[in-house]
């Protein structure tokens, strides 16, 4: 089976090579895809992976099936969790974690907020209600009250993560990190 796949993949690569000679655009696009795959393989070998926005939910679904506990930290991103959000990713993510809770598992989230977020207490209230209704344990931390060392880590984007753990299991825990990506240049600034 594996040798048949290898053979098919090798002949596919030959075909691409032949076509690319006559079509520079295909060559450029193919090179980019191959480079991305190579980078992803390197990351996987180091125990890391980067998931594009369209694959975020399926990947999170897998994590929710594999682990029993989720402890997230959301760094000054209160609007993302608003119930009336139009962002499909935000809504699907919230639904997923809510399902995680209803299946008897334990999700929690620390909401790191700006002190100025308290100028609109209704927003915080709505976000808290959404969490409580979904059975997600929630804690609110005011960024301005953190020690400077933790504030520095937040500025570096290191306080925006989720921990996936299964208690009393040999399964290795992992953490996820929902980084923000600028449209256009595809550079994300929360990558570690």
């Amino acid at each position: 089976m594996a040798s048949r796949e290898n053979h098919s993949s090798a002949s596919g690569a030959c075909e691409v090579g032949r076509l690319a000679k006559e079509r520079p655009a295909l060559e450029k696009i193919g090179s980019r895809i191959q480079l991305e795959q190579q980078l992803q393989t390197e990351r996987l070998s180091e125990g890391r992976l980067q998931v594009e926005s369209e694959d975020v939910i399926p990947t999170l679904e897998t994590l929710t099936k594999c682990y029993t506990n989720f402890d997230g930290v959301s760094d000054r991103d209160l609007h993302f969790w608003l119930p009336q959000s139009n962002d499909a990713l935000a809504n699907n993510y919230s639904r997923l974690i809510s399902d995680f809770a209803t299946s008897g598992k334990m999700p929690n989230r620390i909401l790191l907020i700006w002190r100025s977020d308290l100028d609109s207490p209704t927003i915080l209230g709505d976000v808290l209600i959404r969490h409580l209704k979904a059975g997600i344990g929630v804690a609110v931390v005011i960024y301005d009250e953190l020690p400077s060392q933790l504030q520095r880590l937040a500025t570096e984007g290191k306080l925006h993560f989720g921990l996936w753990v299964t208690v009393k299991s040999k399964l290795s825990p992992c953490f996820s990190h929902l980084g923000e990506v600028q449209k256009g240049n595809c550079s994300y600034h929360l990558q570690e």
Binding site: V56, T59, L60, F175, S176, H177
Partner: peptide
Amino acid sequence: MFQPSWRGTKRKLLVSFTGVE
């Protein structure tokens, strides 16, 4: 710099099985 507003942006998920501690 962290952007307080997330609107108009796309997000990537980074998953790591190392550095969990």
